Simulated assay, not measured.
Amino acid sequence: MAEGVTLLTGAGGFIGAHLVRRLLDEGGDVHAIVRPSTELGRLSPFAERLTIHRIDLSDRLEIRRCIRGIAPRRVFHLAAETRLPPQPDFAAARASHAIYLQPALNLLQPLAELPRPPEVVVRAGTIAEYGRAALPYREDARAVPSTPYGAGMLATTEAIAMLAPRLPFPVVTARLALCYGPGQAPSFLIPALIDACLSRQPMTIRRPADRRDLIHVDDAVDALLQIARQASGRDVPDCVNICSGDAPTMEEVACRIEAMTGCPENFLPRAEPEDAPVELCSSPDLAAGVLGWRRRIELDEGLARTIAGEQLMCTKAG
């Protein structure tokens, strides 16, 4: 990895906190930009080893001042709002500019203006950018997002691609599949299912036939670090899928969680939605070929690690 300062945005989030831990374990000088309202519970175990800057990415002057003072050698841009309403409308389309595109531009411009710009910027994209594209999703396919989140993130990806010839560093977007693992917010499906089974308080699985490409957060962090290592040599494409290539149904995931937590079969009620199932599944071929990266943690192992992590947290809380 490059020597010098590493800067992260979104460090207080699920993936960001796992990445911060890895960077600190490697002995790096790590700075984090977090929103003033961000809860720092995920960062508390290693907050003393981390330099935290409470700045909103919409504040261009503060971002510029911060970046000039840090002069980072590599940057991970993970900050993004993931919990937007799923239904498309004009208000959400207008809001996406302020939520996704403007913060990215506010970050990249002062980085590009540094006397010594960073070697690489690695950005967390999303499988949701593809939407209704043909399966499995490939990086050279035409993306057709179907949600405000996917559309906003894709617009940012495309804007960065437009600016790429003018930037003095590569920007690589890692289109992440759905990540899971210890410490994820209970509003996401897998931690919600685990919590329901551990507490023996069943919740309804509303779309059991939907298929999702899932990767453990440790695999996602491995991929982000590998991109940073290689992209400084500019031999990585500007967009690469980070995924498993598999898409189990949520019914299958629920069955595994029930068995691993000692719950009876069908402990979690399944609903029967009226509309057709939705599948999200990307191809990992480019990441394997260019980065030498593939998922290491299979779903059963990843779920077992996540359940163990949740049990440990429950024990500490008790």
Rank of each mutant, 00 (worst) to 15 (best):
Val5Pro: 12
Gly10Pro: 09
Gly12Asp: 08
Gly13Met: 14
Ala17Met: 05
Leu19Thr: 06
Arg21Glu: 15
Arg22Gly: 01
Glu26Asn: 00
Gly27Arg: 10
Val30Pro: 01
Ile33Trp: 05
Ser37Gly: 06
Ser37Leu: 07
Arg42Asp: 03
Phe46Leu: 13
Arg49Glu: 13
Leu50Arg: 13
Ile55Leu: 11
Arg60Glu: 15
Arg60Cys: 13
Leu61Arg: 13
Leu61Cys: 07
Ile63Tyr: 05
Ile63Ala: 12
Ile67Gly: 00
Gly69His: 08
Gly69Ala: 11
Arg73Val: 04
Arg74Leu: 02
Val75Cys: 08
His77Phe: 09
His77Lys: 06
Glu81Trp: 03
Arg83Thr: 13
Pro85Met: 13
Pro88Lys: 08
Ala95His: 06
Ala104Ser: 11
Leu107Ile: 12
Gln109Gly: 06
Glu113Gln: 12
Arg116Asn: 12
Glu119Gly: 10
Glu119Phe: 10
Val121Ile: 04
Val122Phe: 07
Arg132Cys: 09
Ala133Met: 10
Tyr137Lys: 01
Glu139Tyr: 08
Ala141Cys: 03
Val144Ala: 05
Pro145Thr: 06
Pro145Glu: 02
Gly152Cys: 08
Gly152Pro: 02
Ile160Val: 15
Ala161Met: 13
Met162Cys: 14
Leu167Gln: 14
Pro168Lys: 11
Phe169Ala: 11
Val172Ser: 02
Ala174Gln: 03
Gly181Leu: 09
Pro186His: 09
Leu198Cys: 10
Met203Tyr: 01
Pro208His: 06
Ala209His: 11
Leu214Phe: 14
Ile215Ser: 02
Ile215Gly: 02
Ala220Asn: 10
Val221Ala: 06
Ile227Lys: 01
Ala228Val: 08
Asp235Pro: 01
Val236Trp: 01
Pro237Asp: 10
Cys239Thr: 11
Val240Trp: 03
Ile242Cys: 08
Gly245Gln: 00
Thr249Asn: 03
Cys255Lys: 11
Arg256Trp: 09
Arg256Thr: 10
Glu258Val: 10
Glu258Met: 12
Ala259Ile: 07
Thr261Lys: 04
Arg270Lys: 14
Glu274Ser: 13
Glu274Arg: 14
Asp275Met: 04
Gly289Ser: 15
Gly289Phe: 11
Val290Gln: 12
Leu291Glu: 01
Arg294Ser: 15
Arg294Ala: 13
Arg296Tyr: 02
Leu299Thr: 14
Ile307Trp: 01
Ile307Cys: 01
Gln311Ala: 15
